[in-house]
């Protein structure tokens, strides 16, 4: 399988076509909107945080397959996780798509983005939803980093 076929493999394309967690949460307490200035795409992420847990996550917005699939997989991977775990997973995922050392055992389906680091102009698409989530938490006073 070539890099490009691997990047656009079924799991990614399907997440983009049938994304998990699209819409506005009825009772969110953190949220942020982030725009990718390269393409004009934007993603808005809504979070319901209870007792240091990401109880629910959702997103709205338009984007490419990479940003939409990444957002969908983020919702899937982080819903119900503790903030600390979410932080670690984001760091791990960021390492994966920047071509740094990562812990495969923690990534689950997100490993599908393993070849994204071969497409440096698209790394931003892969991180867009994650950075929006981090912005929402940071701006709301939960120190999440980025």
């Amino acid at each position: 399988m070539s890099n490009i076929q691997e990047l656009y493999q079924k799991i990614i394309v399907n997440h983009a076509k049938y994304p998990i967690g699209v819409g506005v949460l009825p009772q969110y307490n953190y949220h942020a909107k982030l725009k990718n200035p390269d393409c004009g795409d934007d993603i808005e992420v809504y979070l319901k945080v209870v007792d240091q847990h990401l109880e629910q996550i959702s997103f709205t917005g338009q984007g490419c397959i990479i940003s939409q699939a990444s957002a969908s997989m983020m919702v899937d991977a982080l819903s119900g996780k503790r903030i600390l775990e979410a932080q670690q997973l984001m760091q791990n995922f960021q390492n994966l798509i920047l071509g740094k050392d990562y812990d495969e055992s923690q990534l689950g389906d997100l490993i599908a983005f393993a070849t994204l680091n071969q497409f440096p102009t698209r790394v931003r698409c892969g991180m867009l939803a994650w950075h929006a989530m981090a912005d929402g938490l940071n701006q709301g006073g939960i120190s999440f980093g980025k």
Binding site: S2, I4, L7, Y8, D38, C39, G40, I65, I66, F119
Partner: peptide, 21 residues
Amino acid sequence: IHAHDVATIIDTENVAVRAGH
């Protein structure tokens, strides 16, 4: 299909186009 996805795929066929706004 989003323009960026089109541009990335045809780039691997060595075709350089612009995609975005």
